[in-house]
């Protein structure tokens, strides 16, 4: 059992949860994830690590309560226990040698992109962050992103805060300014990662994305998370979750992630009846 030592609600559907998992905390590197089970009946869900503290033995994950399992997780409070919490899994992001990076986060992806930005800044790289949200109310981790970067641009789709428009607009502007990025790291919804990838390909900038396919075990056993990268089948759990964006087949990933959509919808309705709607979390 793994104790929740801190829980914060970052916006209407996004939560930060810090868990006491001393063994897991000691070997984490940026880009890795954990498999979480709320209780013994739960699904195993992969959640990317957003921060960790080796001394305190704590690991923090940020997640959006969008499906039945994440909604259930969001109901757990400080002092409660999670049945299972295993990791760190996945190959850490290859950050060595990056001198001038643009780290892009979309929504909850900002939390996942933070450890990368932090590591790069600590290792002497120039780090720009571009973070995109639908509107002002959904902005999360603004202070953390500012402290982990040299320049932080926040975009909102509706213009209610920061720059109006998509992250790709801000990225293009930065590129045209002659920032000379040697690497772009983009983490967020698939359409965002796909759009960033298309743009950076045009300018020939190496781009890393973190993929979020369906997984069961997270250790290479089920193959549910297979993605096509550069025409080859890769398992996101062991070969990734980070991949060269320009090689990823995003459309295939979109399709594969819809596999349990109908069942998920049904479960979600059930959970909403149980808890009185996702809005009231």
């Amino acid at each position: 059992m793994f104790k929740i030592t801190e829980k914060k609600q970052l916006n209407s559907t996004t939560f930060s949860m810090t868990v006491y998992a001393p063994l897991t905390a000691q070997n984490i590197l940026p880009g890795q994830f954990v498999m979480v089970m709320c209780d013994e009946d739960s699904e195993r869900i992969p959640l990317t690590i957003s921060s960790f503290d080796k001394e305190k033995g704590e690991v923090t994950v940020v997640f959006q309560a969008v499906g039945a399992s994440t909604l259930k997780l969001s109901k757990k409070n400080e002092g409660d226990y999670l049945a299972h919490f295993a990791g760190p899994l996945g190959t850490p992001t290859h950050l060595d040698g990056i001198k001038n990076a643009c780290v892009i986060g979309g929504g909850v992806g900002c939390a996942i992109a933070l450890p990368e930005a932090k590591w790069l800044k600590e290792h002497g790289a120039n780090v720009d962050i571009i973070a995109g949200f639908r509107n002002k109310e959904l902005i999360i981790l603004k202070d953390d992103m500012e402290s982990c970067s040299h320049n932080c641009t926040i975009c909102t789709d509706d213009g209610s805060f920061g720059k109006k428009g998509f992250v790709t607009d801000a990225l293009k502007e930065n590129i045209l300014k002659g920032t000379g990025y040697d690497c772009v790291i983009a983490i967020g919804p698939i359409p965002m990662m796909k759009a960033v990838s298309r743009l950076t390909k045009e300018y020939g900038i190496k781009t890393i994305v973190s993929l979020n396919p369906i997984m069961i075990d997270g250790t290479g056993m089920c193959g549910g998370c297979r993605v096509t990268v550069g025409g080859q089948v890769k398992f996101a759990c062991v070969d990734g979750p980070d991949f060269d964006a320009h090689q990823v087949d995003f459309d295939e990933l979109t399709i594969r992630n819809r596999m349990y959509h109908n069942q998920e919808k049904h479960d979600m309705e059930h959970m909403c009846r149980l808890f009185g709607g996702a809005e009231n979390v």
Partner: peptide
């Protein structure tokens, strides 16, 4: 093989 609905036996059985 990448289509939705193709599983390894490992995934299905797990």
């Amino acid at each position: 093989e990448e289509l939705a609905g193709v599983f390894s036996a490992n995934e299905f059985l797990t």
